[in-house]
Amino acid sequence: MSEARKAIFARLNQRKISTKKHDFQAPLATKHLNKTEAKKLLIEKLQENRAEVYSIPSTSLTDTLTTIATEKGYKTWLFGKNLSGAKTASKALESVSNEISVIQYDSDYETLREVLFHQVDVSVTSVKAAIAETGTLLLIPDKNEPRMMSLIPPVHIAILKQSDIVTSFQQVADNPPWQGKNMPTNILFISSPSKTADIQQTIAYGAHGPKELIVLIVN
């Protein structure tokens, strides 16, 4: 045990501890939105924060992606392994034009680094849940969908199931989608493209992370 630790704890334990109890767990008044309201609010908040949002039936996921590819001219696509329908979508994308290529994030970052930083135009990930109140996407990266997917490429397309929308962050914290104390390596709450207001309070998008965030809400 380090000397510093001992000294710090000695000082902390010397304190006269007041016995006053602080009621820090009292719940705050919350509103619960029904599914339709929650979805509406989520879209509104995401758009407020400069995300592009499309609500689509699950059958047209591939079509939507190929439309985005054609309209926006994204060439190099990055997929993970979590997304159901990724294989179909990859094939469809590659058949749109021979300029489009699809990369799988299936080797480690050190190997893929250069490709990630310099080649990938857009990456597609799944979303664990979404919070309507603040327009927030919850991502839990894992070996199938690594952390960098929603960070390095200039465009991030996030695919959310409509049934995974909840009202508040508190709801997620009270019933987290992970197992008790077994925390995932990284949990991300994403609410907009990367941005900054550090220069004279003027908002600029694409500070360090994605410049664009596209959310597809699948029924």
Binding site: K45, N49, Y105, D106, S107, D108, Y109, L112, E133, T134, G135, T136, D142, K143, P146, R147, M148, F169, M183, P184, T185, N186, I187, L188, F189, I190, S191, S192, P193, S194, K195, A197, G209
Partner: peptide, 23 residues
């Protein structure tokens, strides 16, 4: 900053685990 939430809230609980590809 008057934001209801920031663009990113990043929760880190461990280094790269076995089998994970980045971090």
């Amino acid at each position: 900053t008057g934001q209801h939430i920031t663009s990113y809230l990043n929760l880190i609980s461990s280094p790269r685990k076995k089998g994970e590809l980045d971090g």
